[in-house]
Amino acid sequence: MNYRHAYHAGNHADVFKHLTLARLIALLARKPAPFAYLDTHAGVGLYDLGGDQANRTGEYLEGIGRVWSNERAPALLDDYLGVIRAMNPDGELRHYPGSPELARVLTREQDRLHLNEKHPEDGELLKNNMRGDRRVAVHRGEGWLVPRALLPTQEKRVLLLIDPPFEQPDELERCVHALEEAHGRMRQAIVVIWYPIKDERQLKRFYQKLSKSNAPKLLRAELYVHNPDDATRLNGSGLAISNPPWGLEDELRELLPWLAQTLAQSHGGWKLDWLVEEGAVNAKPAVKDKKVR
């Protein structure tokens, strides 16, 4: 358990992931019915970009730092940037929200949040950071067990983020298993898997497993800041999104070119396609186990 996200907070991968999360929440909020937000590997929720960990890497300078100072950001960034501006009222970029805080601010009174963080110190920080919001429940178990433990929810709509640290070689495979378990328990759930773009051979196996999964439909969105054929560094990141709400594909088609141009380091690029199209004949039987509490 060595991974601490504070070293990477606000980098290009965070910008892409959190902007997409903000758009998913906005699209879900168009309907009055409540939804639940679940986060399997939540982190601490709030990050100090002026702190030692963030400054040791300086990754945020090539991520949110570029977006923060860009005066031509598309209107689709308004919700995402609004949260960050509220955290930095003097106009100086110092604080950055993790996915828990972003979701907490952007969700509504009728929505609920279940945030899980296994790391002992980070779990305690997350609990402290979320204190005072009765809609939020903080869990400190194994993130991979979240679908089994918390689904189905009483809300008929669910947004589940699977965002592990990718310290272990089997985590891409475990992401697919978690997605399948989530859809076995709530077929209509929106499941978002974040993944790093490094080893293309590993990713090809990951794509094949995703395309054969029980996801009713599965959208792949990728953002590159370096040429993706260099396996020695983080070249970009991807999101596999099952059951994306109507309108998200068009929004990403507008946002990805701008992000690729704004965040490119040695090479900017993007991809948007369907790994599983709606109605594909690869669905598996639903899991009928009882919900674990």
Rank of each mutant, 00 (worst) to 15 (best):
F166Q: 02
V138D: 08
R157C: 05
R72P: 11
R148K: 12
G143C: 10
G58T: 03
V146Q: 01
A103W: 00
R85W: 14
G63I: 02
L49T: 03
N70H: 04
P100V: 10
G141H: 08
N128A: 15
P89I: 03
G58F: 09
A86L: 13
T57I: 07
G50C: 11
W144S: 03
Y96W: 06
R104Q: 12
H114L: 15
G51K: 00
T57Q: 04
D90H: 15
P97L: 03
A73R: 02
N116S: 05
Q53M: 15
A103R: 00
K118I: 13
R140E: 14
E59T: 07
N116K: 01
K156C: 11
L106N: 02
N129E: 09
D170H: 11
Q110G: 10
E124D: 09
A73K: 02
D90S: 15
W144A: 01
R66W: 07
R140P: 11
V158Q: 04
V83L: 01
Y37D: 02
L151E: 02
L159R: 00
H95C: 11
A36H: 06
G141E: 11
L126A: 08
E117N: 01
E62P: 09
I84E: 03
P164K: 04
G91F: 15
G43L: 02
G98A: 08
D133R: 07
G45A: 02
D90T: 13
E101M: 13
N116W: 09
G98L: 11
R72N: 15
D170Y: 14
G51D: 09
V136K: 04
D39K: 00
V67Y: 06
D79V: 12
E171K: 04
D170G: 03
R131T: 05
L145D: 14
R135K: 10
D79F: 13
E59V: 10
N55M: 14
R72F: 10
D90F: 07
R112Q: 11
G45V: 01
N116T: 07
P152E: 02
N129Q: 04
L76E: 07
E109M: 11
R94K: 07
G141A: 05
R131D: 12
R104M: 13
K156Q: 13
I64Y: 10
H139Q: 10
P74Y: 14
L76F: 14
A54T: 07
D52M: 07
R56V: 14
T107Y: 09
V158W: 02
L46Q: 03
L106Y: 03
E92V: 15
Q110I: 06
D79Q: 10
Q53E: 14
V67R: 03
I162Y: 00
A149F: 10
P74I: 09
L161S: 04
G63L: 01
W68P: 04
L145W: 12
H95V: 13
V105K: 06
D79L: 13
N55S: 15
L115Q: 03
R85N: 09
H119R: 08
G58W: 05
T153C: 07
R85I: 10
N128P: 05
L102R: 00
S99V: 06
V136P: 07
L150K: 01
P89Y: 12
N55Y: 04
G63S: 13
L102P: 07
E101Y: 15
G132W: 11
W68T: 00
H119A: 06
R85G: 08
Y37V: 12
D133M: 11
S69W: 02
L106Q: 08
D79T: 12
